[in-house]
Design a binder for these strands. Structure first.
Lengths: 137, 137
DNA sequence: CCTATTCTCTCCAGCGACTGGAGATTCAAG
DNA sequence: CTTGAATCTCCAGTCGCTGGAGAGAATAGG
């Protein structure tokens, strides 16, 4: 039986967050000691690890709850789990593309006026200008 | 003179968000009509566009406020603006790398048991397993 | 067994960055 | 002048936590 602190250490999820997940129904209420402290079993740790992993992948808690409710499902329900993963993958791809565009832009901004600090430089202008760098300044 | 709705349309920032920015001190309090409605000038629109752009680039409002306070700065202050852009660029690069790792993993998960819905499939397992797909299942 | 230290408990408040509703006013067009 | 859209303020809620207060429980050492 694991204390909440051990769960935290083993899963990498902070103690208050574990309680938060319980409150949100993502983790079942664990058994308690006579002194009212939570004691978890292996299955709870697995479930928490699942949540952690899915969070890392960017899934919102809603989706994670949906997946958890499908645990051990078969047939059509599995398609739903599949859909969630698929949908999330799409979202992720978009996010990456968007971030890459932004990175290029930040590159431009950060290097806009290297070594030319003698006048109001392009960093601020560049942030304000959505088109593109005014070129030579 | 622009109404808040026009500001919203021109900048792509929602009306309540504009008020929120004002409350947070990112936008100066605009002049008002006799009936107490906000009226903005061009400079305000520019500033809002700046904020919008910087937000798109992932900067937190704090950093944006810092940049705004440096507007028209020279010399050493410019280095600070420069630093903010640079720091943000680093953060962004990390985020992209992380997301790309996650994308690969989602690929694996989403395709894990295509067409094999006859048993409890790998989608759920894959989310729970941080190592890697168990191979053929 | 007692004590000291470390966990853990509950409750509640706050973060960032909005978002949206209620209910009252004001503006602009016809 | 009337109507309908836009705006006003205030406040509550969202998401996913995070951290503090103050109290009680577990555990290791003496």
């Amino acid at each position: 039986m694991l204390s909440i602190g051990e769960m935290s250490r083993l899963s990498g999820v902070k103690v208050p967050t574990i309680r938060f997940y319980e409150e949100k129904g993502l983790l079942p209420r664990p058994s308690r000691t006579s002194g009212n402290q939570r004691r978890y079993d292996r299955a709870a740790l697995d479930r928490l690890t699942f949540i952690r992993h899915a969070r890392d992948l960017g899934l919102p808690l809603n989706d994670i709850a949906a997946l958890l409710s499908l645990e051990g499902a078969t047939g059509a329900d599995l398609d739903r789990a599949h859909d969630i993963a698929e949908r999330q993958r799409e979202r992720l791809r978009e996010r990456i593309l968007r971030l890459q565009r932004l990175e290029r832009e930040l590159d431009r901004i950060a290097t806009a006026c290297d070594g030319r600090h003698d006048h109001v430089c392009a960093v601020l202008d560049a942030f304000g200008d959505h088109s593109e760098c005014a070129g030579d300044h």
